[in-house]
Design a protein around this nucleic acid. Sequence first.
DNA 1: TCTGGGGTCCTAGGACCC
DNA 2: TCTGGGGTCCTAGGACCC
Length: 419
Amino acid sequence: MFALLDCNNFYVSCERVFRPDLNSKPVIVLSNNDGCVISRSNEAKALGIPMGAPIFEYRELIEKENVEYFSANFSLYGDFSRRVMNTVANFCANIEIYSIDEVFIDFYKQQTNIPLDVFCSELRETILQWTGIPVSIGIAPTKALAKIANRIAKKFPDKTNHVYLIDTDEKRLKALRWIKVEDIWGIGRQYSRKLYRMNINTGYDFIQLPDSWIHKHMTIQGLRLKKELTGISCLTLDEVVDKKNISVGRTFEKELKTLQELNERISAFASKAAEKLRKQQSLCSSILIYIHSNFHKKNEVPFYRQSYITLPIQTASSIEISKYAKFALQKIYPEGQAIKKAGIILTNLLPNKYINLSLFEEFKEKEHILMNVIDDINKRYGDFSIHLASHEPSLKWRTLQQKLSPRYTTRWSDILKVK
DNA sequence: TCTGGGGTCCTAGGACCC
DNA sequence: TCTGGGGTCCTAGGACCC
């Protein structure tokens, strides 16, 4: 059996750990630049605030209903995520961390001496006690069914107590008749629209479709999904997988109109991306830089360009990557063009043990050591404590975060004081 | 005025090679 | 009329996820 454990309203729950007074109040967390809603408490959902909603459209409602809001505090959430995952790992041998707030557990390889749903209920209590984060757990023969079981656990907390087990065909079919196609893992907006048009409304309807139709219209992935829903497992647990791409990009707080300003940002993105790359002990062989205008402006022609560069030698050096990133940028940026978002994507990654020495360049051992030192310092003293001179991170372009909660768990000065 | 960020997989089509 | 065949690699684009 597989289980999917998922933190309830994760970012909001993290904020609530330190603000228990907010426990039954509507709370939301906002994206970078306080742009849109990325996490909602149940009370906020009940008020009709959708996921991803631009904040300015709901300002009135927020004030009227006294909705509490926070700027995203990702270092806090990352820290809580680690704590939750570590707790799970304490009791379960085979886990796949699927996202910041979700983890799959493989119970095919692990025998428990009590029934699985009891085991998972106890796990839930322990996580709540150790971290303060409430979770829901779905258990089923396949990953896709565990996703559905999880949804049921979350949807009917009174009946399920946040844990639901699908262990018979009867329960499986009942769940499939209940779930709408758009809520199935792997069926998004485009596919569900197509399915509804054919009067395919539930998971049960979906598995009645012929394989050939599914393959033709939804690729091999759709076919795998059908198998998973019939109870045949074809998605396995991926315990640790290196990222295949690493990207860093941001929407800016205002439009930028000079190469100089863009250079600073791109250079900082490149350093940050290179740092992520070194963390997973990889090298990259090519980079892609993209820039675009504000797509929400209706009266302007959208501007979008990208530049792809194959590096002469695989590297994880901030200095090298930053250098080529700026070169790529200067090739595509027309001075004066207003840019609202830009970013870098590192691609064609490979583990650094396979370093490929070019005939013309020697491996820069000194630079390698320098990068390690930079990573250590930044880890200890915070991002960009030390950085390349080309991206002076002055206050003027720190993102807007008007309501940032303290970094309770990752910064000494922000630790709660007990009086 | 104000609209997030970081990923994955699959397919089709073109370039290139023997 | 008739124009080789098969493989790989790369890229763009479209779908999806959290």
